[in-house]
Amino acid sequence: MGIRSGPCFIKGPALLEPEGNISMVHAVKGVVVRSKGAPATLETILVPEPGPGEALVDILTSGVCHTDLHYKLGGISDDFPFLLGHEATGVVSAVGPDVTDVAPGDRVVLNWRAVCGNCRACNRGQAQYCFNTHNATQKMTLEDGTELSPALGIGAFIEKTLVAAGQCTKVDPDADAAAVGLLGCGVMAGLGAALNTGGVKRGDSVAVIGCGGVGVAAIAGAALAGATTIIAVDIDAKKLERAKELGATHTVDSSAGDPVEEIRALTGGFGADVVIDAVGRPETYKQAFYARDLAGTVVLVGVPTPEMTLELPLLDVFGRGGSLKSSWYGDCLPSRDFPMLVDLYKQGKLDLDAFVTERITINQVEDAFDKMHQGAVLRSVVEL
């Protein structure tokens, strides 16, 4: 367990209130990566009291997500040092003076889509695409005053974090924090790729290429929607077995043959109604494109790297019809989707527990990254 540290008073130019009073900050333990590829280290972090539009959250659990690893390796930006962690459940401990949607004591799942309500997406009733999402205005820092960049505007491998109040979504406090916290990123991305972006319906056929955490969540989402043929595609037998446990009706080992032909063979020779690429490589996207039925849907939810390019015959794009979609955060609206999915979890209709492979302490994050590299876990979850 991390060492619980209390609030303290620290005097400095950035912490003086307008009247000259000294503002309170909290000295707590958190996981930081200082430079590209450096190890994740447990350090003392200074977290200010919430200002307007902000909330202070005591973290209960935080999943170790591939996105955190991307930050660590410099694959997202070079704004080091990063405060890692973002897939989290917590309890609101304080809010800014103008915050009304959450209050101290609320159990919340943190999200990185705090909608603004005023951008062009929000104004046309598509808040799930909000182009101007909010983060906390104040900065968390190291003890020497170095400002930290919190992962996805959250930074949840820490005892307390400061976020925009809109990043807090209230959920049932009786639900297991470790399980429902995974809705904050990877599990929601996969579920939403099927339910929201892909629009999977009862009786549909669905293929999911890549059965890591996001992929198996997409499989669970397809099962939840009532798809009758759900095909899991991967090169790892253990991942394929796990996919079956979460709803796959068929599995395809893509190292042993052509997955496009296998998917067609399992769907009457036509291809699947919805094919979800949870890998995000040109090769897997082409497989998804050609493995769908005419007028079917391709969903890209795996995140490509900047150097990747895709080449497809334009005539095939036209001739096969249908939809080619990218799924951002599962096209979720946290205020709508999180409470609904938590209710389904509590009813036994959505097995979020299956995604929690192990529960670890905040000191074990670096080890969890190693297990992630090995493909040994769906999620390691830090408990504080």
Score class of each variant (00 low, 15 high):
75 G>Q: 15
99 V>L: 07
246 L>N: 03
37 G>C: 01
265 A>Y: 06
95 V>R: 09
19 E>I: 00
12 G>H: 13
278 A>W: 09
164 A>G: 14
53 G>A: 14
315 L>T: 15
180 V>L: 02
308 M>W: 00
34 R>F: 05
25 V>A: 11
79 D>R: 15
312 L>E: 03
149 S>Q: 11
309 T>I: 03
149 S>T: 15
327 S>L: 06
18 P>F: 03
287 Q>P: 00
102 V>Y: 08
4 R>K: 11
208 V>W: 03
234 D>I: 11
224 L>K: 10
180 V>Q: 05
250 H>G: 03
264 R>Y: 09
34 R>M: 04
263 I>T: 06
18 P>Q: 00
199 G>S: 14
198 G>D: 12
81 P>V: 05
128 Q>G: 12
334 P>G: 09
302 G>P: 01
246 L>E: 04
234 D>M: 06
190 G>D: 09
347 Q>R: 15
248 A>L: 11
331 D>R: 13
344 L>D: 14
160 K>N: 10
298 V>R: 03
132 N>D: 15
23 S>Y: 01
311 E>L: 06
90 G>M: 01
181 G>N: 03
150 P>A: 04
150 P>L: 01
374 Q>D: 12
379 R>E: 08
245 E>M: 12
284 T>D: 03
222 A>C: 12
5 S>K: 12
60 L>T: 13
158 I>V: 15
128 Q>T: 11
189 A>R: 12
78 D>M: 15
187 V>Q: 08
142 L>S: 04
129 Y>I: 14
75 G>P: 08
323 S>R: 15
140 M>Q: 12
220 A>M: 12
132 N>S: 14
153 G>A: 06
239 K>Y: 02
242 R>D: 01
213 G>D: 11
33 V>G: 02
224 L>H: 12
317 V>K: 01
129 Y>V: 13
92 V>S: 09
313 P>I: 11
174 D>P: 00
221 G>T: 08
200 V>T: 09
196 N>H: 15
295 A>L: 10
